[in-house]
Amino acid sequence: MKKSSTSVQEPPGAAHRSTPPPAWQPRTDPAPLLPDSEPYRVLGTAAAAGADPALLLRLYAELVRGRRYNTQATALTKQGRLAVYPSSTGQEACEVAAALVLREQDWLFPSYRDTLAAVSRGLDPVQALTLLRGDWHTGYDPYEHRIAPLSTPLATQLPHAVGLAHAARLKGDDVVALALVGDGGTSEGDFHEALNFAAVWRAPVVFLVQNNGFAISVPLAKQSAAPSLAHKAVGYGMPGRLVDGNDAVAVHTVLSEAMDRARRGEGPTLVEAVTYRIDAHTNADDATRYRGDAEVEAWRAHDPVRLLERELTERGVLDEDGVKDAAAAAETMAARLRERMNAEPVLDPMDLFAHVYAEPTPQLREQAAQLAAELDASAGEAPGGPR
């Protein structure tokens, strides 16, 4: 019996055509979406001459304060006042610039390493560290400050940022969401989902990837083979921007342009800031196990604080007194932070049940009653207590 043969049906003329039919052509010209081949820089270039001196001085003051904030918070972990601290030392330009490009009505969606961005946004430093102290899941009111809770799970804040931005656009509100994530977060599914949704619906959101070289101990080369993380934007149909993450003016410029673009209704932008984490992943990490001292020292020579300070002093915008004033203001902040963090927190176990649901469930009320009874019993058995 002769077997019937099967073949793949091809479009007419497929065997003689070297290009796909029109329906298969790219729907978007990728060229305008591609990032520059080199990170965008301002400091040390001719573009620096046109930068606003007032902005430069504000960036400098915030960078100096941010560096001192990082060193003080790290010291608090050694004193047992913080359970953990993911330092952003070396990344202060990204953190500060992200906060300063936001308008009052805009939202910041930080990751766990972005407490400095929240503080630069105006959040009380003690409230920013409450999560890392272990007192509360979030030590501040997100609606009051327009800062979403610090996100410990990687990249889960990105879909939240897109959802809020999309909802704001539907309501006609002039709101842009700025979502921060590390290079490790770009390997998560939430990253893909957020960028895809944002691009399709042209949500007013900006994604800032702080590429600090490592996802804990995993180098970028073992995460992605893309030419840059900014190139990933093309696959979603949004512009990708590549910027020197230690150049505070450059980061501020690129983010400002992306925020303005989103505000005009032109959709999202993916910005990759190339920077470096000088300190270990957290105080519980030993970074010497996966990187050498020479690499760290090379990045210290590209320190964001010193880069801006050199530019300002060479232009005559900053003098020795200005340097001392910025350092003194930062030290005052650190002293106040130490004093307040050294005070023992007043904790109420019943707070476990606060802010879980707008209306507590029957199960939650039952658990709260059980804990209250146990606390009353413990108080009665304490030395000196009622018998």
Rank of each mutant, 00 (worst) to 15 (best):
V254L: 06
G235W: 01
D260F: 10
L242G: 04
H231T: 07
A215D: 08
V218D: 04
K232A: 03
D247A: 09
G235F: 05
G213S: 10
S217R: 05
G245D: 12
L229Y: 02
A250R: 03
H252K: 00
P219E: 13
P227E: 11
E266Y: 07
M238I: 13
G235Q: 04
A262G: 07
D260G: 06
H281S: 10
K222Y: 15
P268H: 00
V274M: 14
A226M: 12
S224P: 14
T282G: 01
N211F: 10
D285P: 10
D279W: 08
E266H: 13
I216M: 15
P268I: 00
D260K: 06
V218Q: 04
G265R: 04
F214A: 04
L208W: 06
P219T: 11
G245A: 09
A250W: 11
I216G: 04
G265N: 02
K222N: 15
V243Q: 00
V234D: 01
V209M: 11
G240H: 02
G213K: 12
G245S: 05
P204Q: 08
T269Y: 07
P239K: 05
P227M: 05
E266L: 14
V206I: 02
I278L: 15
L208P: 10
V234Q: 11
S228C: 09
V271R: 00
V274L: 13
D260A: 13
P239R: 07
L270E: 06
G237E: 05
V206R: 01
P219C: 09
D247V: 12
D285W: 03
P204S: 05
A280L: 06
V234R: 03
T269G: 03
V249R: 00
S256N: 02
V218P: 02
A233P: 09
P239H: 08
